[in-house]
Each structure stands twice: as C-alpha cells, then as structure tokens.
Design a protein around this nucleic acid. Structure first.
Lengths: 207, 207
DNA sequence: GTCTATATGGGGATAGAC
DNA sequence: GTCTATCCCCATATAGAC
C-alpha cells in the first residue's frame, strides 16, 4: 500500500517537474532557466528537485526530445499517398498549425534552441533534413507537373514553417493584434482558414 | 592629447561592449546572457565591464531600444502615398527582409524578448500597434476595393512578419536547407524574389 | 526512497586602489 | 578616469541524514 501510493505520487511529481521544465525552458532557454524556478513551479525545493532529476542538462534533453519526437511522428506528410497538392498542403499546414496552437510552449523550446545556436540539435538535423527533402521533392514534382506555380520547394517548406511557428512564438503579438486569445474557437478557426488560403494562394492554387 | 586618445579609446570600448551585448543577448536572452560572457567578448574583465555600463538591465535596454528604434524609422509603409498594393507590399516585404538579413542578431533579440514574455516591451506596444493599425487599415481598404482577394489585413501583416522574421530567427535551419549562407548574394536575391512572389500571390495579386 | 544540510562555483555589482 | 580586489547572493549539484 505504502509503496503503491509512493509510486503513484512519484509519477505525479515527475509530471509536475516536466511541466515546470517546459514552462521555464520555453521562456528562458537552457541557460536562462534556473532549476530554482523549475523547482518552485513544481512545488518543490531546489534540493528536492535534484533528487528527481539527473541534472539540468538531462532534464532539458528530455523536454527537447519531446518536441522532436512529436514532430517526427506528426509530419509524415504522406509522401507516397496520392493526395492532390491542395489536400496535401492544406493538411500539412493544418497539422503543423494545430501543434503550434496546442503546444505553444513545446514549440517555443525548439525556437529558443535554434536561437541559442542549436548545439543540442546536432543529432536531430540529419533525420529532419531527410524527412524535409522528401517533402521538398514532392513539392518540386508538383511544380514540374504545373500543378503549382514555379517555385523552389525548399522555400515553400520554410515559409510554411515560418507561418505556423509564428503562432506559437509570437502568441503575444498575435493576441495583441487580434485582441483575443488564440485559443478562442472562432479566432482559431479564422486563423486556420486564412492561413491555409494564404499558403495555397501563395503556391499558385486557386480557392 | 592624452585626453583625446582616452576619449577615442572609450568610444571604441563602448562599441565593443555593445557588439558583445548584442551577440550574447541575441543568443541567450536577458536572463541567459552573463556579463561575464559579454565582458570576455569585448576583451574586458567582468569587473572592468561594470565600470563602463550602469548595469545589465540598462545595457539590455539600450540594445533592445536599438531594434525598436530601427523598426520605428524603417517601416513607415507610406500610408499616405498612392502606391499600388503590389508596390507597397513588395516594398514592405523587401525592407523588412533586408533588415532581417542584415541585422539578424538585433532581430533575434526582439524575438527572444517576446518568447521570454515581453515584460520589457510594455512601453513599446502602444506605438507599434498604432503604426500597425495604419497598415492594416490600408490593406483592408485595398480588399474593399477588390484590389486584393478577401482577407483580414491583420493576418496579412502577421504573416509578412512571420515570413521575414524567419530569415533572422531560423538562419540556422534555412542555411542547412539551402546549403548556403544566407549572405551569399545569389541566395539572398532568390529569397527576396520568391518571398515577394509568395506574399503577392498569397494576397491575390498576379505575377 | 525521500529530503535536508552543505559544498563549490559563477552570477551581478561596488568600494576603494591606482 | 580606469581598473582591481572583493563582496554577497544565487546557481547547480551532492553527501549524508532521516
């Protein structure tokens, strides 16, 4: 009984620590975040926290890994599927945007890491580039077929990235301009519609 | 003579400090940057640095102010001018992109600040919002005239922001995908062309 | 297994030497 | 006017108490 409750409690604590770490790292990056602040957010004392984690570096690696793993599994892009460019691009934008809106903090951790020089992404790039090249090749083939206006697939991917990532990184600015939280269903739907429309139109597809 | 040389030297030192501060703050944000690292980068000892600056907060304020001032003066957008939508949008994208490519570190400082919660931007938002609303109104009037496809001017501005800012914030990713530094003239020109094309097309303007 | 007391270094900043 | 010696605090991390 005692052991049972204790184990359960430990899981809860670990969950709290992880949430706290996500919040702090996403705001201040690896260097800027303090284990102190993470501990407080998880309702622990700093010295307690250090019992539950290996060290700051490992905790960060775990959190950063969560983002990278999510993205790896989400953005498969169905390279083989025989979707139309319109369907495929819409779907890609929608999935990436949904992730940005639903996991803004995790998304920001990646941005912070890139801004900080990306030293902890070394192992990540090869896989990411491979996955991206597949998407780029698909886009370029659509261009060759005349399904899209002439453009460089790499830039289209980069631009979609930029546009979707904006909604997690610049939530502050966006909410100020829209005078509403991005989580409001009507705002969210409007963003999704307009963004998809913007990308499709930008790629040379009619409404 | 002595005084003269000394004064000159001080200016040079201040310049070095500022450059160092820009580099460090842009990588690690306010919290993450250390006066130690700034001092070293400026070839000073930490204790020396603290003679030349008021404190870390003031140094940061100065650097952040540089970005905000640049943007205030650059993006006037000629609200009154009778440019065509095509000309006005192209010009806006070009100017903002040029700034991102030429001052990536300064641009990143703003992004880092927003990611960190933007506490030090409180005084900045009102002016920025005012300037932005003027642009938005102009865009919306073009939509009303049928010069642009139906869209929300606020979102178009946000999207242009996202796209241009990407080239400073995600330089790392972009250079990896393009397999070239963004400073290479041919790459730079290609980005400018494609980005402007993407925005114009996305806003419903033909090539 | 959990937490506390404590070590050690680096953080920002200053009083006072030159 | 410039720089050094030094302060004090907070950072991360751990050895050992419970």
């Amino acid at each position: 009984m005692r052991t049972e409750r204790s184990k359960q409690s430990r899981q809860e604590i670990m969950r709290k620590i992880l949430d706290a770490a996500i919040a702090e790292f996403s705001q201040h990056g690896f260097q800027g975040a303090s284990t102190q602040a993470i501990a407080e957010r998880a309702q622990l004392k700093k010295s307690q926290l250090h019992y539950y984690i290996e060290d700051k570096e490992a905790l960060y690696a775990q959190v950063l890994g969560m983002v990278l793993d999510s993205w790896r599994s989400f953005f498969v892009f169905d390279s083989d599927a025989k979707q139309s460019p319109r369907e495929a691009l819409s779907e890609f934008v929608r999935v990436k945007l949904d992730y940005a809106l639903e996991n803004p903090e995790l998304s920001r951790i990646f941005t912070m890491e890139v801004l900080s020089g990306g030293a902890r992404l070394e192992n990540y790039w090869p896989g990411a580039m491979e996955a991206t090249h597949a998407k780029v090749a698909k886009i370029n083939s659509w261009v060759a077929e005349g399904a899209l206006r002439p453009l460089d697939g790499r830039l289209l991917i980069m631009h979609i990235w930029a546009l979707t990532q904006y909604y997690s990184d610049y939530t502050l600015q966006a909410e100020m301009l829209l005078e509403s939280p991005l989580t409001a269903p009507d705002v969210r739907q409007k963003i999704e519609q307009e963004l998809i429309q913007f990308v499709l139109s930008g790629a040379g597809l009619r409404a």
